[in-house]
Design a protein around this nucleic acid. Structure first.
Lengths: 174, 174, 174, 174
DNA sequence: GTATAACCGAGACGGTACGTCCCGTCTTACA
DNA sequence: TGTAAGACGGGACGTACCGTCTCGGTTATAC
């Protein structure tokens, strides 16, 4: 229904009707449209067994590339698949502080994957040991989200390369 | 009123009442809440004469630093000043495609400033000539927006340093 | 719609839909279902020009008889015409004190007609001068309403005769 | 709870909660709010051993007076005691035909007492033998209910006297 | 200096959705 | 096995705003 109507026109009334369910039942389980969508999103992504690739390939560059391209893949089409949902959630997060807290947890769970890769890189001496990994993750993710949100340029391999190249070269040891 | 109520609870009805104006008059001038806010935002930022620093200091690093810190300054407090407004607009942009187009123009007008600085850097040989400047701007802005939107970490000098350092070191010539 | 559905199943939602009107518009004009019905009732009875007979025939008995039979006529069929509406209003009056006040005014406007007839009777010496006219009206109306409300016996001429006979004979001068 | 909340706001949900009982259990015993209240009313009036006075004093006037004043007593205060309950039941009877049937039986059980008194009066020659006793009971009860329902005048001794006087004088033999 | 038009506040209107209450039925988990 | 607890599908409530639409009562202009 999200893809069909868009988040704004998606009403709890309509969800209930489509589900053949009383509105109260929905309010019993979720506090609002946002939290319902977040859960539906989590369910959909986990159900489709589309886990992000976490295997250790031996090189930060390769690990990061795999991870980032996987994220790019899911969000490359701004108007279908995961992107509309994540965009909607980011919007709701700006409109409802309570929702922001929940959403942040979801988003930060993704950070973990990136953090681990970067930390492995440090251990292997591929990255400066004093680099601020958390900040680097924000760079990686921020660059990605920015294009998804504004839709002013595509999430393509060239962009991924630029991002990864910049982050790694910019934090090479000495 | 935006700071007071938040974008979600800010209704055109309330704006009209507060302004001592008929609703029709508002609809005559703006097509929706989003476009009204975008204009109010533009008015407020220009009125306060808080233009971004564009002077050429002679070094990319310094120019970038000044520019980025100026942006950081305006948005450092996530719950007052410019941040709530920009966050609201980013939200609206996700919910209304027509608004997205308008908002994108506003945002991209800011890109110009960063692009010019990077291009000057290329000319001076401070940056690789084949670096994708547009992508680098997205890196800079994306990293900034990301923390503003998620509010999971502060927009502080350390973060600015990491961003600039990474972008510049990551795109040094040869 | 009242006759069709009955007062209980008559919802403001349905009235609005049938009238092709927003619910708010109804709430703008009437405070509740009861007050709307009371107004519809007043409108219907006045529109149909079914005024009660108030002419002076020269005898209390005859005046009273005409008046009472006219009331009987309108309410003889407990399940159509005026009776369902008046019954509904009497019900609402028991459930909502504010409505009771309004309803009482309507009902007491009818008392006036009976009171005038009785007072004429006193003047002509057909009734004891110290009879409590108001109480006698309550007797006349109470007896009528009682059968309408309980529907345990018909509003027929015999009952009208008994009522009038009792009230007049019971209050003959000396 | 009836006195506390009024019939309208009295919900089965609330009754169950207050009673520490499942809703289902209530529906197992009573078909609706009305029937539950009618039973509670019957229980309350019988428990308080406030039976109506049926003894034969030797005079219709006296018997009637005792009986009527007893009814008046219970309902003199329109907002507490028996009156709110009877008013509620009369309301429900107008809204639900099935309930009306049950309620009518309860009400008519009271008629029996009045009928017996009137019949005794006929036997003793205190009343015209061809008087319609049932109609007279409706006069007595109707006059009483009317004031209880509209609350436009008190149930006082003067009113009782007028009622009884009218009914007896109006149906004296010859 | 007055008639006339443009404007605008106020807010009613048809409408959608909200979040809540309660209905009467169904399910669960404990005693 | 029965029952409290309460979830469920459902209907209606009364409210908030939406974007559109009349209204009068000013101004401001043209005659």
């Amino acid at each position: 229904m999200l893809e069909e109507l868009g988040y704004k026109r998606l009403s709890i009334e309509a969800i209930a009707a489509r589900a053949g369910v009383g509105k109260q039942t929905i309010y019993r389980w979720w506090k609002g449209k946002g939290l319902l969508v977040i859960e539906a999103f989590a369910h959909a992504t986990s159900a489709r067994a589309t886990e992000l690739p976490t295997a250790d390939s031996g090189s930060v560059a390769e690990d990061l590339r795999r991870l980032l391209l996987s994220v790019f893949d899911r969000n490359a089409h701004y108007d279908r698949g995961a992107a509309p949902a994540t965009k909607s959630m980011m919007a709701e997060a700006q409109l409802d502080r309570e929702f922001l807290a929940t959403f942040r947890e979801l988003v930060q769970s993704w950070h973990g994957l990136f953090l681990r890769v970067l930390e492995r890189g440090k251990e292997r001496g591929e990255l400066r040991p004093d680099a601020d990994s958390a900040a680097l993750v924000d760079l990686l993710m921020g660059a990605t989200w920015y294009r998804v949100l504004l839709e002013h340029a595509p999430l393509d391999k060239a962009y991924a390369d630029t991002i990864i190249r910049t982050v790694l070269e910019g934090n090479r040891p000495d």
